[in-house]
Amino acid sequence: MNLDNLTGLIKVWARDRNLDKADPSKQMLKLAEEVGELAASIAKGRKRGRLKDDLGDVYVVITILSMQLGLDIEDCIEAAYGDIADRKGKMVNGVFVKESDLQ
């Protein structure tokens, strides 16, 4: 299944459970929880399957959060890509630092 189809299924799943109308501040807490689980999995060197599930959980939560905020996740991703598409910078200690922050 492709990402568009899966995102659509996530949206239907969320609407069926009225999550699209829930409090975004609660969903933000859920996002922090899921990101924390992902960080713990990376820190503990967990297997690929666990990392895949943790990353997927983060995507599900941000998709629902975008719905609660009246935004479309695809539009958010497109906007973010527009910001980085031509970004220049370099790796510093394993982290990409954008050019404007290097000065």
Rank of each mutant, 00 (worst) to 15 (best):
D72T: 00
L51F: 13
T7R: 12
K47Y: 05
R87E: 05
S41D: 10
D57W: 07
V61T: 06
D53N: 08
E99W: 14
A14S: 07
L65C: 04
T63K: 03
G45A: 02
A80P: 08
M67F: 11
R15W: 01
G94S: 07
D4S: 11
K30R: 13
K26A: 09
V97S: 14
A22H: 06
E37K: 12
L9P: 11
Y81G: 01
G56N: 01
R48T: 06
R15F: 08
G45H: 04
K11G: 09
K11E: 11
N5I: 08
L3D: 05
S41L: 01
G36D: 04
R17G: 12
L65S: 11
E78D: 12
V95S: 07
D83L: 02
I77C: 09
K44P: 01
N5A: 08
R87Q: 08
T7N: 13
D20F: 02
E99D: 15
L29Q: 05
D86P: 06
G8I: 09
L55E: 00
I64V: 12
L29Y: 09
D54A: 07
L55H: 07
V97R: 03
M1R: 11
L6P: 04
R48K: 11
A14G: 10
I62T: 00
E78R: 08
E99Q: 15
G70L: 14
D20H: 06
S100D: 13
K47F: 01
D101H: 07
I73P: 10
K21L: 15
E99A: 13
G70W: 11
G56S: 09
S41C: 07
T63Q: 02
Q103P: 15
D86K: 05
E74W: 03
D86L: 08
K26V: 13
A79F: 04
D72M: 11
L29M: 13
D101A: 00
D75H: 01
A85M: 10
I64S: 03
D20Q: 04
R48H: 09
L69K: 10
R48A: 00
V12C: 06
D72R: 06
D57C: 14
D83T: 13
F96D: 01
T7V: 14
G56W: 09
D20L: 11
I10G: 00
Q103I: 15
D23V: 03
G45M: 01
N2V: 01
E74S: 07
I77T: 13
D4M: 05
R15K: 14
R17N: 14
L6V: 09
K98D: 10
I77S: 03
A32D: 03
Q68A: 12
R50F: 09
G8C: 10
A39K: 00
R50G: 06
E37W: 03
L3E: 14
S41K: 03
D4Q: 02
V12D: 03
G82K: 08
I73M: 08
A39V: 12
L102T: 14
L51H: 02
S25W: 06
A85V: 04
M28A: 13
V97D: 15
R46G: 02
R15V: 09
L51Y: 04
R50S: 10
A22Q: 12
W13N: 13
S66R: 01
